[in-house]
Computed example of a mutant assay.
Amino acid sequence: MTERQPYRMLARHPGFELRRYPAHLVAEVRVDGSFTAAGNAAFRPLARYLGGANRSRGELSVTAPGGPAPAGSERIAMTAPVVQEEGDRPDCWLVRFVLPAGSTPATLPEPVDPRITIRELPEELAAAMRFSGRWTDRTFARRATALGRAVIAAGLRPTGAVRYARFDPPWTPWFLRRNEVVLPVAD
C-alpha cells in the first residue's frame, strides 16, 4: 500500500475539512503548459527520480572482490498524493511528489535531472475538499471555486494558492479516484 501524506483533521465544515499538515519534503518540477499537459510532463521525471534516476548520498559500499565501489542509485517509495499548484506566471505549474515521512535532505538521494528540486514545505493549516472523478482542469477548477467559497463562508482567510491532489494511478477507474483541492488558510 502506498504511504499517504499525514495530516491531522481539526474540524469538519460544510464542504471541507480543516487540516494541519506537518512540515514535509517534496520532489518538485516546474513545467510550462496547460493544466493537463503539465501534470503529464512532470510525472515522468519525478517517477524516474523515485525509480532510481538519482545519486545516492550513502557511504561507499564494500563489494567482493575489488574493495569499495561507489554507492549507486536507490529507489524511493511512492507516496500519495501527487500535487499540482499554479506557478508564478500563466501556464506555469509546480508538480510535486510528497516524499516518504522520515526523509531528510541529508538522507534523500540527489536527483540526476536538474529540473527536480527537493524542498521542505513548512507546517500548514489548510482546508481540503475531497471528491472522486476525472482529472480535468474543469473538474478541479469547479471544486477549487466551491472550496474558496466554503472557506470564506466559514470565516476563514485563504493565504496561498489552491493545490490539486491526485491519489490514484491513472488506471484506476475514474469513479474510484480520490482527488482533493487544498487551500492554505490563516491560523
Score class of each variant (00 low, 15 high):
residue 67 G to L: 13
residue 110 E to N: 05
residue 117 T to L: 04
residue 182 V to T: 08
residue 4 R to W: 13
residue 54 N to T: 11
residue 185 V to S: 04
residue 82 V to T: 07
residue 74 E to C: 06
residue 15 G to H: 06
residue 9 M to V: 07
residue 184 P to W: 05
residue 33 G to E: 10
residue 176 L to W: 12
residue 21 Y to R: 06
residue 117 T to P: 01
residue 128 A to L: 14
residue 177 R to T: 12
residue 113 D to N: 11
residue 88 D to A: 07
residue 182 V to D: 04
residue 176 L to F: 13
residue 21 Y to M: 08
residue 62 V to T: 13
residue 176 L to E: 11
residue 162 V to N: 06
residue 165 A to M: 08
residue 120 E to M: 02
residue 40 N to R: 07
residue 12 R to N: 12
residue 33 G to N: 09
residue 35 F to H: 02
residue 17 E to L: 05
residue 69 A to I: 10
residue 109 P to R: 02
residue 85 E to C: 01
residue 165 A to E: 14
residue 177 R to W: 07
residue 7 Y to K: 04
residue 162 V to C: 11
residue 8 R to F: 05
residue 79 T to V: 15
residue 110 E to F: 07
residue 179 N to L: 11
residue 113 D to I: 01
residue 28 E to N: 00
residue 59 E to M: 09
residue 73 S to D: 11
residue 82 V to C: 05
residue 72 G to D: 14
residue 122 P to K: 05
residue 110 E to T: 15
residue 75 R to Y: 06
residue 31 V to P: 01
residue 37 A to L: 06
residue 157 R to V: 01
residue 79 T to M: 09
residue 55 R to I: 13
residue 38 A to H: 03
residue 70 P to C: 13
residue 158 P to L: 02
residue 25 L to E: 10
residue 23 A to D: 06
residue 100 P to L: 15
residue 83 V to E: 15
residue 64 A to Q: 10
residue 124 E to W: 00
residue 86 E to M: 09
residue 43 F to L: 11
residue 123 E to C: 01
residue 44 R to V: 08
residue 1 M to Q: 06
residue 181 V to E: 04
residue 92 C to P: 00
residue 55 R to L: 15
residue 4 R to F: 13
residue 103 S to Y: 12
residue 181 V to R: 01
residue 86 E to A: 15
residue 154 A to K: 00
residue 187 D to I: 02
residue 101 A to E: 11
residue 73 S to V: 09
residue 41 A to C: 05
residue 79 T to L: 09
residue 109 P to Y: 02
residue 160 G to H: 02
residue 71 A to Q: 10
residue 76 I to A: 06
residue 111 P to L: 09
residue 94 L to W: 04
residue 50 L to G: 04
residue 163 R to N: 08
residue 83 V to K: 01
residue 74 E to Y: 03
residue 31 V to K: 02
residue 11 A to L: 05
residue 173 P to K: 11
residue 65 P to C: 02
residue 138 R to S: 12
residue 156 L to F: 13
residue 29 V to P: 03
residue 85 E to Y: 00
residue 147 L to F: 09
residue 155 G to Y: 07
residue 55 R to D: 12
residue 19 R to V: 15
residue 181 V to P: 03
residue 31 V to A: 08
residue 70 P to I: 14
residue 36 T to D: 14
residue 117 T to A: 14
residue 48 R to C: 11
residue 105 P to Q: 02
residue 46 L to D: 10
residue 12 R to Y: 10
residue 112 V to A: 15
residue 122 P to T: 05
residue 138 R to G: 13
residue 78 M to I: 15
residue 131 F to Y: 11
residue 109 P to T: 12
residue 60 L to K: 08
residue 182 V to Q: 06
residue 145 T to K: 14
